[in-house]
């Protein structure tokens, strides 16, 4: 190619311009397509709610041969016993399942929240760079392990090697065993999200505190953690939400098929999720009262996690400190 004289326009007069109308139509098409795809996520939420409400409604309006409601809402909420098979008439007091879920979640949280936060502080404030990246990849592995593996771990390691040597009251299944396994599962969630929050605190705040004569621990406790509090609380809530919804660990380790209202960590408990697994794995006929009860349980479970997520989002939104 010869070099062009400066006066020559860069675009040859023979070049045809793109068809602007066509391009506008294409633009519109792509935007609409993307909009529809995005809408699917909203539809998913709505569909979950519609299905749960519809099936739960069916459950509460089922009538027996005598025309009486089989499970009035009041019994569902206030009865202290959940026994769809063993008692006659069957009893559907969701409190037993909720207490099972909360007991396992409380054990997991008692284990994972402090440990996760301290680990996050270590990673963000103390660990040398190499140790930090090594620890972080180990925690990433922990986060990637399927939950059914934790269930196996609870059954074959935690129960026989940790719990049973301590007390003879631990059987094969216990809330404690499942709780510890769930705790290990949510630990990386807490530590990695809390670490993100801690590292988002600008260095200038640490410098400001140190320059006033704080020790490192005082800086962490009085400046860094308070500044990162919204992120830390959000990580706690997310971890607790995951613990509440966790299924495979509790289905394996928490207990057999018996729900009971208890706070004894050595007891067998049934959680909301474990009950659903039991129904769908068992041979309860579709449309029967036992089968239908799983939707009412799912609705309760959904309500719990929904509220938790909302609180988390609110906290993040309201207390997010804006740093320059």
């Amino acid at each position: 190619m010869t070099s062009l004289p400066a006066s020559t326009p860069f675009i040859s007069p023979r070049a045809r311009p793109v068809r602007v109308r066509l391009r506008a139509v294409f633009e519109w098409l792509m935007e609409s397509a993307l909009f529809l795809v995005t809408g699917l996520s909203v539809i998913t939420t709505l569909a979950i709610i519609v299905i749960l409400v519809h099936e739960t409604w069916k459950f509460f309006t089922m009538r027996g041969a005598d025309g009486q409601l089989l499970v009035p809402v009041k019994d569902f909420l206030t009865d202290s016993m959940w026994s769809p098979l063993l008692s006659n008439p069957p009893r559907f007091g969701v409190a037993s399942l909720v207490s099972g879920t909360l007991l396992v979640t409380a054990i997991a949280a008692a284990f994972a929240l402090p440990l996760g936060l301290l680990t996050a502080v270590y990673l963000s404030e103390y660990a040398p760079r190499r140790v930090r990246s090594l620890l972080k990849s180990l925690l990433e592995i922990l986060a990637g392990i399927p939950t059914v593996v934790y269930g196996f771990f609870a059954l074959t390691f935690i129960t026989p090697n940790l719990l049973q040597p301590i007390s003879g009251s631990f059987g094969t299944h216990s809330a404690m065993s499942a709780g510890i396994a769930v705790g290990i599962m949510i630990l990386p969630i807490v530590s990695s999200l809390a670490e993100d929050a801690l590292r988002a605190v600008p260095q200038s705040l640490r410098d400001g505190s140190l320059a006033l004569g704080s020790t490192k621990a005082e800086t962490i406790l009085r400046v860094v953690i308070p500044a990162a509090l919204s992120g830390i609380v959000a990580s706690f809530l997310l971890a607790i939400t995951r613990a509440i919804g966790e299924t495979m660990i509790v289905a394996l380790a928490a207990g057999g098929g018996v729900a009971q209202l208890t706070v004894d960590p050595a007891a067998q408990v049934q959680t909301m999720t474990a009950y659903m697994v039991q129904v769908f794995l068992g041979d309860a006929p579709a449309g029967g009262v036992e089968y239908q009860s799983s939707y009412a349980v799912a609705f309760t479970l959904f309500a719990f996690t929904f509220v938790m997520t909302w609180i988390g989002a609110l906290i993040l939104r309201r207390y997010r400190e804006v740093y320059e």
């Binding site: 270590y122 392990i145 290990i184 990386p188 621990a217």
Partner: peptide, 28 residues
């Protein structure tokens, strides 16, 4: 001394997390 206690607590927590992972992988 308080400062050292915090450091030790944090390092210990990280150690427990690693131990949990190690015992899980090893037992399996």
């Amino acid at each position: 001394r308080m400062s050292q206690v915090v450091l030790i607590a944090c390092a210990l927590a990280a150690f427990i997390a690693v131990t949990a992972l190690a015992s899980l992988l090893l037992s399996i």
